[in-house]
Design a protein around this nucleic acid. Structure first.
Length: 255
DNA sequence: ATGGTAGAGGATCTA
């Protein structure tokens, strides 16, 4: 079984790339972030035509998340309970016995910003919600755009980024507190290429110079971590015409 | 000189 996550930065623009990628990689589920589409505009039929079901929750211009899957999902949730949020950043569903929680964590802008406060509150609410989800589901995967680079090795220039948003200690602590609930960062279960990242700024030739950060993650609970056979970042999408600034991440589970 | 690029939407806001 293959599970993937990809911040597409507008599904309208990236739909042809998403369809090509699904056909080439055949994941069982693909979580999308930053669809930037109202639900009425979601390209459900185009995605269905290649054999994938869609669940989604979107809004105009910003945010928006979806899960595309070969099998039908159940117990669909489109927001965190007990966290009032106008922004569409969460979608979860159960596929057979696997609970999939797909998230788009707020960016935070900068550590002085009120958006940063919102990010930390959002992460606290996520932690609390997942404690419940872990109790209710034996197999759980949490994946998406976390907007957090967990360690210095996930950052092309750790000194320049020290204390900055995406790398600050409170954010990294929030990430570690998620791990402490009983999750494993699937990417670090395996030998990986040096300087592996999932996001590169569009500006300043960042991708060409591999000035990136690893901020998109697939976290597996213990039951699924035991079954994990691979985790890879697919950089090839970042080389396409009109790419997303993020690359997809995919895990393979032996089950 | 707080720059630069992309997306949405139609001036800025977000990332």
């Amino acid at each position: 079984m293959k599970l993937a996550t990809w911040n597409v930065n507008s599904l309208k623009v990236r739909l042809p790339q998403v369809i090509d990628w699904l056909e080439a990689n055949q994941p069982d589920m693909l979580c999308l972030q930053e669809t930037k589409l109202l639900d009425e505009n979601f390209p459900q039929s185009e995605i269905a035509s290649i054999g994938y079901q869609s669940i989604f929750i979107g809004q105009k211009t910003y945010n928006g998340v979806a899960i595309l899957s070969k099998q039908k999902g159940s117990e669909i949730v489109t927001a965190m309970p007990s966290f009032d949020d106008e922004q569409r950043r969460v979608i979860a569903a159960t596929y057979e016995d696997i609970r999939v929680v797909s998230i788009y964590v707020p960016n935070g802008d900068n550590v002085e910003s009120s958006k940063y406060e919102y990010k930390l509150k959002w992460l606290l609410a996520l932690n609390r919600w997942l404690q419940q989800e872990l109790k209710n589901h034996k197999k759980l995967v949490l994946m998406g755009d976390f907007n957090i680079a967990p360690e210095d090795r996930d950052v092309y220039d750790p000194k320049m980024w020290e204390g900055k948003v995406l790398c600050s200690e409170p954010e990294r602590m929030a990430f570690n507190e998620l791990l402490n609930l009983g999750f494993t960062d699937s990417f670090r279960l395996f030998e990986q290429p040096e300087k592996s990242y999932t996001w590169w700024d569009y500006r300043m030739m960042a991708f060409r110079l591999n000035r990136g950060l690893r901020i998109d993650h697939i976290l597996l609970n213990n039951e699924l971590a035991r079954a994990c056979a691979a985790c890879v970042v697919d950089k090839t999408t970042r080389k396409l015409e009109r790419p997303s600034d993020h690359a997809p991440v995919m895990v393979e589970l032996s089950m």
